[in-house]
């Protein structure tokens, strides 16, 4: 079972397996998602605003603590989550600047 993730504001879409973590799915599709700690809920850099499709998946304490420190303002009345933690269990829409999709990546990108 796979779900569709839509990145905003670019509108780029990709598929995620049921239960797959958002950033893991993104990386699998060649999307560059900012991160520092490597996906273990330590740095807080990979935050995004989940605008639609958030299943019943409350943040664990480590993520919740980190989210208090990440200065991410909601733009579209969604919920700020860490992409390395939040799981895709429905079609999902996520708003996040600074995420480069393969289509957008300039020619000189690594």
């Amino acid at each position: 079972m796979a779900y569709q993730v839509t990145l905003l504001p670019s509108g780029f879409t990709f598929e995620a397996e049921a239960g797959e973590r958002l950033s893991a799915a993104a990386l699998r599709h060649g999307i560059r998602w900012p991160r520092v700690c490597g996906g273990v809920s330590e740095c807080g850099v990979c935050y995004g605003e989940v605008v639609g499709g958030l299943a019943d998946d409350p943040p664990a304490p480590a993520e919740r603590l980190l989210l208090q420190r990440v200065p991410a303002a909601t733009v579209m009345e969604g919920e700020i989550r860490l992409a390395c933690q939040v799981c895709v269990n429905r079609d999902m829409e996520v708003y996040r600047f600074g995420v480069r999709t393969p289509k957008q990546a300039p020619a000189d990108s690594q």
């Binding site: 504001p9 900012p34 520092v36 600047f97 600074g98 480069r100 990546a105 300039p106 990108s109 690594q110």
Partner: peptide, 23 residues
């Protein structure tokens, strides 16, 4: 962690400080 492309770093900057310029 990643050896980022210059554009990625710039995107992070615009995304946070000048979102109207991002993209």
């Amino acid at each position: 962690l990643d050896p980022l492309a210059e554009q990625d770093g710039f995107d992070l900057f615009t995304g946070m400080y000048l979102p109207e310029s991002f993209g």
